[in-house]
Amino acid sequence: MAPSLLPTRDRIVSAAAKLFYSEGIRAVSVDAVAEKAGVTKRTLYYHFASKDDLIAAYLDMRDHPNLALFKRWFSETEGDVADKVRGVFYNLAGSARHPRWKGCGFLRTSAELANMPGHPAMKIGVAHKKRVEDWLYGVFEAAGLEPQARTLARQTILLLDGSFAVVLLHRDPSYMETAGEAAHSLIRLAGLLE
């Protein structure tokens, strides 16, 4: 759907998402979002009580599509559960090779709001990361990797989020592939311990 045909609220969130992801939430003003969305500042504030609410809506919009993408990459990768999880990392590395890639919007936002743990966007970020962890737990549980399924899910999240940070720092997506290999090894090892 063309941006001008989107409902006003969705158009504002879409404009905010582009700006927040490319420039950071603190660097982008409400005026810039309104301008990009093609609305007045008053209209923006009609739909969002504050910039904080807009930031939360931006992350909320990313939640389900991001997890759906991980699930798709997982299901499209051939092999066992270890291969499929590694496939998620390799697909992320492919995304990280795109010039407009700026890392994980949830982690970048949490870094900008680190001194505000009660911020609505922080709560959405925590919930998103928990959903990803719970999905991985379910994957590992279904693969018969109990009692290590929860630990494997946490280890995989740590590798995932750590790779986001290191790739942003070095601008080298191969770190994400290396993290995928580490996840693959951990999952295989857990399978051997059964």
Rank of each mutant, 00 (worst) to 15 (best):
K84L: 02
S95D: 14
A56L: 10
F70G: 01
V30A: 15
D83W: 04
R154M: 13
G162L: 15
G79F: 02
K36H: 13
W135H: 01
G94C: 03
K71C: 11
A49G: 12
F106E: 03
K84H: 03
D80F: 01
R72G: 05
R150P: 02
E141A: 14
R42Q: 14
G38Q: 15
L54G: 04
V126H: 09
N66T: 14
A111H: 00
G79T: 01
K84M: 06
Q148R: 14
A57R: 09
A37Q: 03
N66K: 12
Q155S: 12
G125Q: 06
L159F: 05
L152V: 01
L69H: 05
A111V: 13
V167R: 00
K84Q: 06
L107H: 12
T43L: 07
M61E: 10
T40P: 09
E141N: 10
D161M: 07
E78S: 06
R62Q: 14
A37D: 09
W73C: 02
L59S: 07
E35V: 01
R108T: 14
A165R: 08
H128G: 01
G87Y: 10
F140H: 02
K36F: 02
G105E: 06
L69G: 00
H128S: 12
H170G: 13
F106R: 05
L136N: 09
G162E: 09
S50D: 02
K51E: 14
V28D: 12
D60P: 00
V85M: 04
R108W: 06
A142F: 10
